[in-house]
Amino acid sequence: MRAADLATAVVLMGLGGLVMFDAVRLGYDWGSDGPKSGFFPFWLAVALVVTSGLIVVQALRRHSPQPFVSREQLRPVLAVLVPATAMVLIMEVAGLYVASALYVAFYMRWVGRHRWITIALLALGLPLATFVIFERWFLVPMPKGPLEAWLGL
């Protein structure tokens, strides 16, 4: 727990530093007609660095035996997160419909061990429903890939 706490706080401090750097470029002082572009970001970032620093101090002082996440806990989390990230990656090339069908099928089979017929129904039904609702009704174009191009959609 402590390591995660420390790491998060340090990352936040770094983020604050990054923001301060850009705020200086924008001008962080109080101009003739109020604060300049960088004024608020600068002081917010200063406060962020200071507060995260205090959290670091706090975390160093306190010992917590409990780990941030145990191995048994991490497995189901990664089981959701990794395929989801993979889905977004596939979305970039193959479009949303293919990616979501693959993702739903994969998760249902791998984690849920559902029957193939149920899987097929949902893995095809969900993209189809998305297509009808978003693309046909509300005319929101979704990212598409070669399959859709081939179908002429």
Binding site: L96, S100, Y103, V104
Partner: peptide, 29 residues
């Protein structure tokens, strides 16, 4: 095991739909 992927997909679709932008889906993750 059915609800979880459905929610994730709905989240992804929703994130994309806000601005029609792929980067938003990454932000979501």
């Amino acid at each position: 095991a059915i609800l979880t992927p459905l929610i994730v997909v709905v989240c992804a679709v929703g994130s994309y739909a806000v601005h029609n932008s792929m980067i938003d889906v990454w932000y979501m993750v």
